[in-house]
Write a protein that binds this DNA or RNA. Structure first.
Lengths: 187, 187
DNA sequence: CTGATAAGTTATCGGTTGATCAGTTAAAAA
DNA sequence: TTTTTAACTGATCAACCGATAACTTATCAG
């Protein structure tokens, strides 16, 4: 039995594979706990190649965070259903939106936090604020981000065994309603 | 000049000093990035003594998290002003309530997350749910916790330079109102 | 076919981390 | 004072991490 069908050499697809692996690991592991060896293994490359492409672990983190921003898709939703749509996207099993998790996890490491704050600002807060419009556009964008981070932290990330499906459902509805309230706010 | 007035030997106050230092460091640094050397230095003890008292770094983390739970003080507030009171307590400069930060930071390390989830459950979610009462007591407690974690993450923790005082003030009011709505919910 | 070049790996290094062992010093008991 | 016990420390270790240098191998233009 041939164990390993070899792989075609291609820098672009390899980089994409590394970014995929990095997103997954950085979304469930803090910056320091995430090891480049683990990411490299998941992407089926050597750590050397990973570093050759992205320079340093921090460089890989920034690239992965940038690549993980799917906000455009969510912002193309109609305003009237933004809240429920975001709730569904965040809680979808498996294919979750990862930045809220990466954001919360970044806060514990100075280097990662600096990178995360910049990327979050440019790729998420600013466009969302622009989409929301006045009044208090930026504050309202931050509030939605805060809601998203809190929701995923307590539903998907912390191993709170006592959480029931009923709890999660109630939280999802509350989240959708809260976000929608922020979107619709006029005063 | 005598640089160091020596210190009276006392295990209890020394343990308290270590716990204080641990709370501070664990509230701004992820579990893995927080070093026992840093905590020991801040507490002015050796790492050896720290480990002798708390066994392992994880043991110290659990003790610090337990000691950092000030929920009782907040729960003695009248129900009608719970939201604003919690907002004030969370955003007070310097003396912040630390568990929401520690909670978010714990999520990135499997060992810390397990400890944090258990402590959070017993010391925060469960009592808060009991205080809230039906309907959906537990889900509503989780929602308040999620709000608190999100708020402190985006106001105090992530280095988002663009945050203005106006933004923070708007978020604080929004937070107070949102929490109060959960407290008052009857349906 | 044949270099040339890009894609990829193996081996290893210095630095840091949590933890341990053996020892020292201060305070209380006798 | 002397003895005993508890508080506390310095030196050190094995394990692991990110990063680097030197090397091999596949792909493709000519």
């Amino acid at each position: 039995m041939t164990l390993k069908p070899p792989r075609k050499r291609n820098a672009d697809t390899t980089k994409a594979r590394i970014l995929d692996a990095a997103q997954e690991v950085f979304a469930r592991t803090s910056f320091s706990d995430a090891g480049i060896r683990e990411i490299a293994t998941l992407a089926e490359v050597s750590t050397t190649l990973l570093l050759q492409y992205f320079g340093t672990k921090a460089g890989l983190y920034e690239a992965a965070l940038n690549a993980a921003m799917p906000l455009a898709a969510v912002l193309s939703q109609p305003r009237e259903t933004f809240g429920p749509a975001l709730a569904t996207a965040l809680l979808k099993p498996g294919l979750a939106i990862r930045p809220p998790l990466m954001m919360a996890l970044a806060a514990g490491n100075a280097e990662a936090a600096t990178i995360a704050a910049r990327v979050m600002e440019e790729r998420s807060i600013a466009p969302l604020a622009k989409w929301l419009g006045p009044p208090h556009a930026r504050a309202r964008a931050l509030e939605i981000a805060a809601l998203a981070t809190g929701l995923v932290t307590y539903t998907k990330h912390l191993p709170l065994r006592a959480n029931t499906r009923r709890d999660v459902k109630h939280m999802a509805e509350w989240f959708a309603k809260s976000v929608q309230r922020i979107v619709d706010a006029t005063e």
